[in-house]
């Protein structure tokens, strides 16, 4: 188990996960990018910006 950087929930990551893969936190649904393996380190995947204020 790896900890979600967004909500601190437990994230299940496959043993054979590869860097740059995207996994999803089961608690907060955040998309998380695998930035390192052995040990696995997760970071929030880049957000898609939306701005309708023009």
């Amino acid at each position: 188990m790896t900890v979600c950087p967004e909500c601190r929930g437990a994230v299940s990551v496959p043993d054979d996960v590869m860097a740059a893969e995207i996994v999803v936190c089961g608690e907060c649904s955040s998309e998380l990018e695998v930035v390192a393996v052995t040990p696995t380190v997760l970071a929030l995947a880049p957000e898609v910006e939306e701005d309708w204020g023009e």
């Binding site: 967004e6 608690e27 649904s29 955040s30 995947a45 898609v48």
Partner: peptide, 8 residues
């Protein structure tokens, strides 16, 4: 339900 997504 907690709905606070960062994308989508």
């Amino acid at each position: 339900r907690l709905v606070a997504h960062r994308s989508g």
